[in-house]
Structure formats: structure tokens, C-alpha cells
Design a protein around this nucleic acid. Structure first.
Lengths: 259, 259
DNA sequence: TAATAATGTTCGTTATGCGAACAAGGGGCG
DNA sequence: CGCCCCTTGTTCGCATAACGAACATTATTA
């Protein structure tokens, strides 16, 4: 059940906290270092306001300042790490992911839904690189075009799924990207029925992946686990005929052993 | 040069942001889920205050609420990820760490100093588990008792090093843990002289590691890279005679190739 | 059933955070 | 070299966002 959520107009909403977090998120791979004015522009804030947040984050150790330039400090990892360390099943799941990588020789990850994205929360990387970008814990990708995201969307009830479909903006990444909302709905329903999802070169040419949901012993959804491979190396028969049973077996082990 | 740092008494310091971040950090592996009152107690805040921050974080998607219990949501990974994605050299260094793991068969990591700790910012894990805890990006360990931390401390100038030594509180983890401040200073000076550091079973029985500093082509210190192994499997002669040259070669490659 | 403890919430008050305006620095051009 | 303009840094009067004491509600225990 969805708890009532505070609106920004509520007297209980702390706008300074919200703005401060927005300053942190303004930094990314395209904007690793910024001046005060650049931060103000990217966040839509008054320059004096952005300055106060940057100086506060700097004094707390989350931001480094060099002359006029600001960049995030490693200490911000502590904020995300708080989530990882609070999740005691991650270490356990990590072992299963490493088993998959050892057995199949491909990368395997645990992902969870967050809004319209899937976030990687545990990962076992194979030796070879699959994608142009480096995937790591914390990476977020659109749920619609990943096997992890698609099988997680399949676990939603109908109302939640329709809510998602009514909001999602489908972007084309490759020739194979699904951009029709009805086709996406159908793929998710099929995933729901067959208990697994496949994403085939929708996000990155050559990237082919398969995911199954991961439940714990109390029937709580932990997330989904996947195996990622390259279409040139693994055909669909192998993916479904060899990899799928392995993934299903791992998911069954997780369901039996993870509390 | 250390930039002047804002004090919490300054009118430019945003106390609401500082308090909100403290609420996030209150969650850890011992306190994965807490009630409002528990958060208030752990942070020393008035309950109504803690409530406002929790509800704000909840509305922003950083915290989940179940009845009276709060827990961090995966979205907080986005805050730490902002640092990782802003660091464009990480993908490059990752490759070198994986080379080390492939060549030596042991785990290798990149770490940076943050206060009295060393934070892992990139990691290549070997197949076998070395420590009781799962190390991952974001993990922080005391700099004094790790090879990464020790070689990073060795890169500080004398004033910075003495400042660190005057504040650090040395905790004993094993029988081999250095707890004498003068002995630690000496170890760091030796590391400075020989260009590498070793930590031998100070943090965890059996854990033996070696680290060298990693500079980029512009002579900026990126961090330190290490190799971690088990004392039962690798003796000191092998560590220094075989592993050290490999690490030094990798550091030299990083210095030549990383901008 | 009543008392007590724990937790949830409100709203008068004030100190925090906002932003317009001023100050300072840097670069370009005549 | 001096002036102008643009960019960046900083201040402080003021309004309201956030604080916390006190009230409200719920859960537990005797």
C-alpha cells in the first residue's frame, strides 16, 4: 500500500534539504566540475542560494573546492553506501551473482525499480566488457528497455503498471528499441506470464539480457537478477535453453535461502 | 592549499541541509530500519524535526516508509553515483585493476583519503572472498591500518601528516594492529621512502595487502591502488618480489596514460 | 478498564535561509 | 593605461521556513 506522500507545499516539507540534494545531483559525467554560477544555472537557483549550499556541502566534506571550481568529494559515497550497508541481503545475493558469472561466464546483476528506472544494487562483472558505459552499483537505466526493468514492471499490479505506462516516455536507443506503448505493455504481460523477461539490443547494439524476479523466503520481492551477454556470442536458443534454467535455479535458491 | 572552510555558525551555513544529511547517515548495517523516534535519538534531534526530514526524504524518494518504520530507498545511490559518474578516470582505472586481478588472481582496488578513512572508489574482485565483510565501492576503512590508507598518508606533506596523527584514534583489530602513534608515523615515513606500503593482518586476520600511489600524467594524485591477498597463501617474499613490481608497472602505466 | 509509555502531529514563534543589491575581480578594447 | 562590461563573490534586511513545546492519538501493560 502506498503511504501518503508529503507535497512540497506542506509545512513539514524541508525545502532547504530538497534544494541541497538537488545541488549534489547537478554533478554528473558531463558536469564533473562546475563554478558557482554553473551550479546555479543547472539547478535554477539564485546564485547566492547555490553558494550557501555549495559552501555548506564543502564544510561537511561532500564537495571539494578548487579556486572557483567545485566538484563532489568521495564522502558523498557514504550517502549511497548507507543504503547498501543497510541492505544485509546484498552480500548474500552477491554470492549468487558470482556463481552465475562463474558458471556462465557472463555478467550478472541485481536491480530494483526506482521510478521509471532500474537501479543496479549488486553486480558480478565478467571479464569482457559488454557496453560502452561502465555499469556499476548505482547505475540507473530505463526500466522499459532492460530485462531487469521489464520483469520488475511485470511484478507490479495492474493499476501500478498502467500508472507507469501512462507516464513513461519511450526513447529510441537502437533500431530494435520498442517505442510503442501497447507493444511494451504486451511484452510486460508476456514477461508476467512466462516468469522471465528478455531485452534484445534495445539499449545498446549487441546487448542481450535475460532476467528473472528474485523473492526471499517470505515472498518479498528483493529485486530481479539478470545475465547479460552479447548477441553475436549467444543466440536466443542458448539464452532460453541454457541460461534461463540456470537463472531460474538461482532464483529458487534465493527464495529458499534468503531471509 | 586548504581553502577556508565555513563554520556551522556562519550565516551562509545551511543547517537544515546538514541535519537532513545526518538523517541519511543514521541508517547503517546495524540500523537498516528505524522508527521516527529511533532516528531522532540517533541524530540527537527533536522528534518533530526528525519527522520533517524523514517525510521530506520520503517525498523525494530517498526513504521508504512502512507503517512506523523508515528505511533508505535505492535512490540514495544516486547521490553517491553522482561522484562516481563525475569521475571519468574511474572507467580507465577499472581496466588496470582488472588487469591486476587477471594477472595475479587477487582483488585490487583504487582508494582515496577522506578524513581518517580510505574510501574504495573502484574495485576488481577476485573469485575468492578475503574478508568477513563485503568490500565494495563506497566502503570506508581506517587509513591507518590499510596499505591504501598508509601509502596515501605518505603522500601528505609533514604538516598535514602531523595534523592527522594528532587526531587519529588507533583501534586494535587484531594482535598485529599498530596502536602506537610513533610506530605508525615510522611506518608511514618508511612507506614514503620506499614508495609503497604494506598492511599485514592489522585489520583482519590473514589479510595482507600492498599498495602504491597512482598519479596521472599531470602529476595529480588520483589515489592509491592495492592488491589484497591472504597471508596463508602469499608470503612476504612473494608479495614484495613478485606482486610489487607488477603494481609499480601498473602505476607507471597509469601515470603515462591517464589524463 | 485504566494508566502509562510511546509515537504522531500541530502551530505560535523566531531564527534560518532567501535574494536583491552591492562589491570585487578579470578580460577586452580603444 | 584606463575604462567598460561581464562574471563572480558577498552582504544583510526581511519574510517565512523550520523549530520545538505541547497537545493528540495509539499501543501496551498491569
Amino acid at each position: 500500500m502506498h503511504e501518503d506522500i508529503l507535497g512540497p507545499e506542506s509545512r513539514d516539507f524541508v525545502t532547504a534539504l530538497a534544494s541541497g540534494l538537488e545541488v549534489i545531483r547537478a554533478f554528473d559525467s558531463e558536469h564533473p566540475r562546475m563554478t558557482l554560477s554553473e551550479v546555479a544555472t543547472r539547478t535554477g537557483m539564485n546564485r547566492a542560494k547555490a553558494r550557501r549550499f555549495l559552501l555548506t556541502l564543502h564544510s561537511l566534506g561532500y564537495v571539494r573546492k578548487q579556486h572557483r571550481y567545485f566538484e563532489l568529494a568521495p564522502r558523498v559515497l557514504h550517502l549511497g553506501y548507507a543504503f547498501l550497508s543497510a541492505n544485509n541481503y546484498r552480500g548474500v545475493i552477491q554470492q549468487y551473482l558470482e556463481d552465475i558469472t562463474n558458471e556462465i561466464g557472463e555478467s550478472s546483476s541485481l536491480g530494483v525499480l526506482d521510478g521509471e528506472d532500474v537501479i543496479y544494487v549488486a553486480r558480478s562483472a565478467a571479464k569482457h566488457r559488454l557496453m560502452a558505459i561502465t555499469l556499476s552499483v548505482g547505475t540507473r537505466l530505463p526500466a522499459a528497455h532492460t530485462s531487469l526493468g521489464r520483469i520488475l514492471l511485470a511484478q507490479l499490479d495492474n493499476e501500478e503498471l498502467e500508472s507507469y505506462l501512462s507516464k513513461v516516455d519511450l526513447t529510441r536507443y537502437t533500431d530494435k528499441t520498442i517505442t510503442d506503448i501497447d507493444e511494451l505493455r504486451n511484452q510486460i504481460i508476456v514477461a508476467r506470464q512466462q516468469g522471465y523477461a528478455v531485452a534484445d539490443q534495445e539499449l545498446d547494439p549487441g546487448l542481450r539480457s535475460l532476467a528473472v524476479p528474485a523473492y526471499d523466503a517470505k515472498h518479498h520481492l528483493i529485486g530481479a537478477i539478470n545475465v547479460s551477454t552479447n548477441a553475436a556470442r549467444v543466440d536466443m536458443d542458448t539464452l532460453l535453453g541454457v541460461y534461463l534454467p540456470i537463472m531460474q535455479k538461482k532464483a529458487a535458491q534465493i527464495r529458499l535461502n534468503v531471509n
